[in-house]
């Protein structure tokens, strides 16, 4: 049977009904149409479904949608505000950190969670903070550069 679910996503509140077995990722993508959050593996390894829940990065494929009841969720669609790109988004463009783009949203969310906790990370800390997100195109090189660049911009 379905259960009521109140989700606060990107500062909008949704009242839904979902099955207990549904994961947060599928609800975001299929019920809310927020397909910026990607499906890549469903085993919690690729990180393409990473969202920020109550300030923490989590893999939305490994969370029951009902466990997110009442929580504040930020997806890639909520990263820019009033049409203004987040510094991470700007840096990903400027530093050419995007290739196929399928890992990009999850990567951005992990990077945001990292910078929220550690505004001034070293290269090693960025590599460590992103290792839960797989990218098959870039070798992570320009992604790490972009995160360091964004940290600098935010710091200014």
């Amino acid at each position: 049977m379905k259960y009521p679910l109140k989700l606060h996503v990107n500062q909008r509140t949704y009242n839904l009904e979902v099955y207990p077995s549904q994961n947060l990722r599928d609800v975001l993508r299929e019920e809310l149409g927020l397909t910026g959050t990607k499906e890549g593996c469903s085993t919690g390894n690729c990180g393409a479904c990473t969202v920020i829940m109550n300030g923490m990065s989590v893999k939305s494929c490994l969370i029951l949608a009902l466990q997110a009841d009442g929580k504040e969720i930020l997806t890639v669609e909520g990263l820019s505000t009033n049409g203004q790109l987040h510094p991470l988004q700007e840096s990903f463009i400027d530093k050419q950190a995007v290739q196929c783009g399928y890992c990009t949203p999850g990567m951005l969310m992990s990077a945001k969670a990292l910078l929220d906790q550690n505004p001034n990370p070293t290269e090693e800390e960025v590599r460590d903070g992103l290792h839960g997100n797989i990218c098959r195109c870039t070798g992570y090189v320009k992604i790490v550069e972009a995160v360091l660049d964004a940290a600098e911009k935010i710091g200014q």
């Binding site: 919690g44 923490m56 990065s57 989590v58 893999k59 969370i63 992990s110 990292l114 839960g132 997100n133």
Partner: peptide, 8 residues
């Protein structure tokens, strides 16, 4: 695991 896994 990863930060995301440890967070939850």
């Amino acid at each position: 695991g990863s930060v995301q896994v440890r967070n939850w």
